[in-house]
Design a binder for these strands. Structure first.
Lengths: 150, 150
DNA sequence: CTCAATTATTTGTAAATGCAAATAACTGAC
DNA sequence: GTCAGTTATTTGCATTTACAAATAATTGAG
């Protein structure tokens, strides 16, 4: 137990980094990364999302997302199409290969959930998730540099 | 509420990234970063730690830490000294300037704690921390690539 | 004492990241 | 219809990061 253990951001970051690293190691043999999984999961829920939408839901910065999607496109997992309604926007679509990969990733993600939450009962697991949601919302309120006008 | 909201690693990463970004924005004017704060906090607890020790307690990869410490040394916040007992190792010491900066960072870190935990009562806050500790421990058990022998 | 094996740190290098500038397309005022 | 202002995405670039190789020093076997 170090001194940092008292600080929430540290605890959060540390736990998050560990899970992310472990998950990443696990999916690398499939040619996937954690970030790819996020994109695929978001598109699995609703296909044809725009980059901005995807950036929002995955919490991946747009410029990072652009390059991530470049790679996924090269791998044939997704395809960019111009949005019909608004030609500024790009709609991202999963390909059959992307769908197959998604299907293989889902059980891995679920298994990780189990491993991470070992020793938690259902009520505790749910509480943790709710706490994290709340925490995110709290921080969202002051998303610093580009403050809401005022 | 997106589809990813059900997945713990995502919730964790998202909340962690938000706090980290906000904290980073806040301390940038002081010439500090989140990672520097971690190092200073660890050294504040016990000065003269070795790089490896620091890497362990801050969860910053050693090679990353080396370069981070390079920068902190240039800024005059810390000083490397050869460890007396073992000349392979480097002992890091905080300078007076580093101590002054630490003193200014502590209240910021505490304020962030408060902001992040707005709406949490003391019991909930404590629970969250314990959960995050447990989660980290769970993942630690399988720290994948360099598996424990067996 | 000497050498091989181990341990602590740093450096090389490639990939990921994020901000800001550039590009492309839409919108509304006129 | 044209143009200024806005919005969506990409690109440029500098920073951060991590893995692996290189360096430096210790330890124990002989």
């Amino acid at each position: 137990m170090g001194p940092l253990d008292a600080y929430l951001p540290y605890l959060l970051n540390r736990a998050g980094a560990r899970i992310a690293a472990a998950f990443g190691d696990e999916v690398r043999p499939l040619g996937a990364t954690l970030q790819m999984w996020r994109v695929l999961a978001a598109l699995g829920e609703r296909d044809g999302r725009r980059m901005g939408d995807l950036s929002e839901t995955t919490s991946i910065e747009v410029s990072t997302l652009t390059r991530l999607v470049d790679g996924m496109e090269r791998k044939g997992l997704v395809a960019r199409r111009r949005d019909e309604a608004d030609a500024r926007a790009v709609a991202l679509h999963v390909t059959p290969a992307g769908r197959r990969l998604t299907q293989r990733l889902i059980p891995i993600a679920e298994r990780y959930e189990t491993v991470a939450l070992q020793g938690f009962d259902a009520r505790e697991a749910e509480m943790l998730k709710v706490f994290l949601q709340r925490l995110f919302t709290n921080m969202d309120a002051l998303k610093s540099p580009h403050r809401r006008r005022g």
